[in-house]
Design a protein around this nucleic acid. Structure first.
Lengths: 208, 208, 208, 208
DNA sequence: TATGAATGAGGGTTCATTCAT
DNA sequence: AATGAATGAACCCTCATTCAT
């Protein structure tokens, strides 16, 4: 069997085991057995447990960003772009829960070599959202400088909320990607509208 | 030295090690050494690694909810209550990053005995937020039935965003609890206002 | 059983296994079994295979130099001192062949951490011999400067020959320590006498 | 490429790796890669790691004895023969340090199949030296019977010293083959002269 | 109340070796 | 004549856990 095919089989097995057991609790034995190969072959192709894990992260990060990108048509209005992107995101994480566990939980829980890998993906998604929000702000004729700082925090909160919802949707029966996306659009996009109209929430003065 | 005191020392050490190394990578040896006691004593008091970890989760979950509760005065307006609760939440997680890592990352990454433990705390916080949102909805004279379903999703998204921001604030230099809380209030509370005034975002028809 | 005693048992076993199998071929399992303890205990006390091997080298190097030192009385004539030292050396290496294999073969065959350890011992022995030869030279009224360079080469050759003879005597039936020492005294001490009387062997001229 | 050529390339690589890493630490992978062939080909030609190592020993043992033999002209005086033989020996071991490591260190450190192989070579060299010493003894009109026993020990010590000096010269900067040979001639051949003239060193009586 | 001494079990990694082509 | 693909076995090391005191 050609090397490339075997490698994908190994990554399939590894994502499943890493996603379910966690990085440390996963054993190379179990992964090799699930992949239907011997352990030395896994080491021959992926070098080490770290190498295998990194390869998983990279493959799944690419797959997720690819899925979101494929769901969005940049010639549509920005709110529609955000809606489509969220739908694609929630659909992909729901269809690949182990991959999502690897990216969101495992990769961030086990130190630098891995956290950096997934941070790159996150940055890409955050800047996609930032761009959408910035366009919306411009369309609303907001002061660009002021908007820029707000926009960054806004995008960060939106992506964070989306990540939380994805995990929550995976863990909760009967929550569809469409519902998750809908909730998020209502909360954030409507909020964005208010912000654009100048409805800031002003913290009480004289503290901290 | 009395047992209760020793136990707290052990939990202090355990939270630190679990939070920094992760549940699996933490070794009982290291925890015992940091606590300044011998390993058998740890087993005598906490029974097992699982028992120790569970005790950590319980103590820190209680401490976090207690901190939030202490920060809120129920006789103030609801938006002020949410603001105060968020400030307390972000302040506590910033002051106890290891504890937050245990609760948010480790406990959810290592399977059922622990995930359930932290889920209870989360439920408590979500219902606190749900109550606040429900009150706001009632004050805006919204249809209560409709609101209830929306309110649940809203609260879930808000708490999820808060959790993400807490981790992000811990990892990012120069982000204060006040700033994190402010960002979140602007995004969600303003959004809530829009919702209350009926500014729903309506998904495009005929899909999925 | 107290730790110090167990440690010596482990070193006894390790010297035997390392001496017979060689450093790389020796397995920690076999050493632990021969010592009558479990493998983790070996690691608890000696840290690693390298640590165990280093401890063996140190113990046996000390034992060998101690044995030679104990055999020599510095108030006797120098030839008698050399004779006694050689006898002690050959007797010790014959009684502890595994230790000699560890020091002479294994430690020098497996790289720097170990080679340096045994080099220290060798230096000590070489300088002991150098001192004896230098005294003999002085007694023969030789030019000290000239002697010094010759003396170094002489001591090196003598110690090298002794090491070779020790291994050879261990491998050959019926060669006693006394015989080995006698052979070496005849070859080298008589040669030293000739040298002292100016009987150099002069190499043929005109060659590289 | 013809088999004979490939085989020599493999042995070249193997001697280098075995000499530098040691027999056990050398990996067939590394040897095959250095030889520029695939691993199965090494097995096809040399059968096993043991077979490969044995072939190395045999080739290098032959090369070394051949080099010594080529350096000696049997029609010259015996001391000149010894001098020429030593020069050839030290020159060859200096030019082929990996081969010398294989013969002197590795082959003797890893048990019977290999030790026997190199013992044969050593016997050949010892008897060459023995013959030279015996001739010198006869020329000095010594009692032949007495000489024979002495001669054996003498040759053994001389060869042992030469082996030690070869390793020492390889490890020490700036020691030439000529210097090593010169040191050894001075120590032993002068000593032999003394012996021939009856200057025995007599051990102290009444011991051991 | 507290610990020094000890271990069963298992994990990551490597290696000599072979088969099918 | 030569190799890509694959593995059984073994090794170093660590860890959660317990006994005897």
């Amino acid at each position: 069997m050609p090397r490339a095919v075997r490698e994908q089989q190994m990554l399939d097995a590894a994502v499943q085991i890493f996603g379910q057991r966690g990085y440390m609790a996963a054993s190379m034995d179990e992964i090799a057995e699930l992949a239907g190969v011997s352990k030395p072959l896994v080491y021959l192709y992926l070098n080490s447990k770290e190498g295998l894990f990194t390869a998983c992260i990279r493959r799944e990060a690419t797959a997720l960003t690819e899925a979101v990108r494929a769901g969005v048509r940049t010639d549509l209005p920005v709110d529609r772009q955000l809606w489509d992107g969220l739908q694609a995101f929630f659909a992909h994480t729901a269809e690949h829960p182990d991959a999502w566990s690897v990216l969101h939980l495992q990769a961030r829980t086990h130190g630098e070599p891995f956290a950096a890998e997934v941070a790159a993906m996150r940055t890409e998604i955050v800047s996609f959202v930032t761009r959408l929000v910035a366009i919306a702000a411009r369309e609303a004729h907001r002061d660009p400088d002021l908007a820029e700082r707000e926009v960054a925090g806004f995008a960060e909160a939106l992506v964070g909320a989306a990540e939380s919802l994805a995990t929550w949707a995976n863990a909760t029966e009967g929550v569809t990607a469409r519902q998750a996306a809908s909730t998020l659009m209502n909360v954030t996009w409507s909020g964005l509208g208010s912000l654009m109209r100048g409805h800031h929430w002003v913290p009480p003065a004289g503290e901290d």
